[in-house]
């Protein structure tokens, strides 16, 4: 543990920067993928094109992408922008499929009912389809979150300051402890993000965690709750 104790400042700095480098691409890929998912649901051709493009993007090896991006973007080789753009590309690649599936998962009858009572297609998207796509969107976002946090480390090879530095440096110095602390910190970040995402889901989608009627109506067996039900079923005897 001596290395870790001596280098707490470095680990903390790298962790914070790792978090910052992850948050931006996660948010951006969500913001970009949702409209693309909407486009994908317009017709089967667009869906095929969008989803295939997403999959293709994901097959680009990360290292060459990090190296090439400065030439494409005209950024400096050490610029953080390269890492952010590369990770956003991967995030979108994963998220676009989830977004398309999420929006397609909204019940057709509910959509029609919304139209029938007077939602315009714009308000219907924001107030009905997007919220109801929430659970599937959240599932996709959790995958993006984990994969982004893992990929950030690769950026260390082109000089990005993040936990990946500990892997490179630890290998050069043959310091297993340094590598391990990098792994542990990455996992902790991934866990933290996941907890935050799930908590956000609970807050933004309260209808998801309420006990459906049939669980309450089933009197003899003890009431089963889907985690953290805000509407308690304890009244069932």
């Amino acid at each position: 543990m001596s290395w870790t104790l001596d280098n707490l400042d470095l680990v903390a700095e790298l962790t914070l920067s790792h978090i910052r480098l992850s948050v931006v691409p996660i948010v951006l890929s969500f913001v970009i993928a949702v409209p693309l998912g909407w486009v994908a649901n317009r017709n089967p051709t667009l869906r095929a094109v969008t989803i295939s493009a997403g999959s293709l993007l994901y097959t680009i090896p990360s290292l060459p992408l990090f190296v090439i991006l400065p030439y494409i973007l005209g950024t400096r080789v050490l610029s953080e922008v390269n890492v952010l753009v590369a990770l956003t590309i991967y995030g979108v690649a994963v998220m676009v499929r989830s977004a398309a599936d999420a929006l397609a998962s909204v019940d057709k009858d509910t959509r029609q009912a919304a139209t029938a009572v007077g939602y315009s297609s714009w308000t219907r998207f924001w107030r009905v389809e997007l919220p109801l796509a929430g659970p599937v969107l959240l599932a996709g976002l959790r995958v993006v979150s984990v994969s982004t946090i893992a990929l950030v480390s690769v950026g260390a090879i082109i000089g990005s300051r993040n936990l990946g530095y500990l892997f490179l440096n630890g290998r050069q110095r043959n310091n297993l402890e340094e590598i391990l602390i990098g792994i542990v910190a990455s996992i902790l970040i991934a866990l933290l993000f996941d907890v935050i995402l799930v908590a956000l889901g609970r807050v933004l989608m309260p209808w998801q965690t309420t006990a459906p009627l049939r669980l309450l109506a089933r009197q003899p067996s003890p009431p089963r709750q889907r985690g953290g039900a805000s509407w308690s079923s304890s009244s069932a005897r």
Partner: peptide
């Protein structure tokens, strides 16, 4: 407008 199975917004 009233629909079969009410057509309420589940959220």
């Amino acid at each position: 407008y009233v629909l079969q199975a009410a057509g309420l917004l589940p959220h």
